[in-house]
Amino acid sequence: MDSVIKTYDIAKVFNPGMPDQIKAVTDISIEIERGGITVLKGPSGSGKTSLLSLIGCMSRPTSGRIIVNGKDVAKLPERFLTGIRRSTFGFVFQHFNLISGISVIENIMLPLYPSDIKLSSIRKRVESIMENLGISGKKDFSVQRLSGGEQQRVAIARSLINEPEVILADEPTAHLDSKLSEDLKDIFVTLQKEGKTIIIATHDPIIHEGGFAGRVIEMRDGMVKEVTVE
C-alpha cells in the first residue's frame, strides 16, 4: 500500500506527571492510504481529535514516530512543522475557526497571504473553489452572517486554497442536517477523485457507515479497537 502517513506506537499524554494526567492517545500504529478516504470513529473522548492533530503536525507526540511522505516529523521543532502543515495539509476544524469580522473571500485567501502569489491570482483561485462548492454568492458576506452549512463550506474552501495533498476534517457534519451531510459526502468524493487524501474524524453514522470510507479506524480510550477495510 502506498501510504502518505505512517505512525509507529504514537502516544500523547496531556499534563504528564500531574494529578490530572490524561493519556489521550496510546501506542497507535496506523497507515493512511494515499488518495483514499479514512474515517476515525469512536465515542466522545476516545482521542479522535488528538490523533488527527498529531497526524496533521498540529502537535507533537509524547512518544513514537510519525512519518509524513517518508519523513519523520515526530521530533521536529515547531518552526519546521509549520512548513509541513502549509505544504501538505488542509484543515477543516470542528468549530470551523473562521475569523469573524472579515469577509468570506478574505477568510479563504488567508492561508496564502504569507506567500509571494499576487492577490489577484489568489482571488481567481478562490473564486473557482467557491464556484465548485456552491458558495460564490457569499463572497463579500462577513462570516458571522452565514448559516452553519455555509460556514462549513467556507472552511473547506480555505483548507483547499494551498492545494494540499491531505485534507483533515474534524466532525465535519456536527452542524449539518442529514441533507447537508449527504452533500458534504459528495464534496469529499469529488475531492478524492481529484487525488486528495481525506481523513475524517467523526461519530456520525452517515459518514462512517455505508461504504463511503475506504478504511474505518475505530477508536476506544485512546487506542485502536478495530480497522475495517471496504
Binding site: 515547531e78 509549520t82 512548513g83 502543515r85 475557526n97 492561508p111 504569507p114
Partner: peptide, 19 residues
C-alpha cells in the same frame, strides 16, 4: 490567542505572525 492559533494552523509561520 485563538486567531494566532488559527493563522498558524492554516500555515502561517511564526515570523509571518510577528510581521
Amino acid at each position: 490567542r485563538q486567531e494566532i492559533g488559527i493563522l498558524k494552523a492554516i500555515g502561517w509561520e511564526t515570523s509571518d505572525i510577528l510581521e
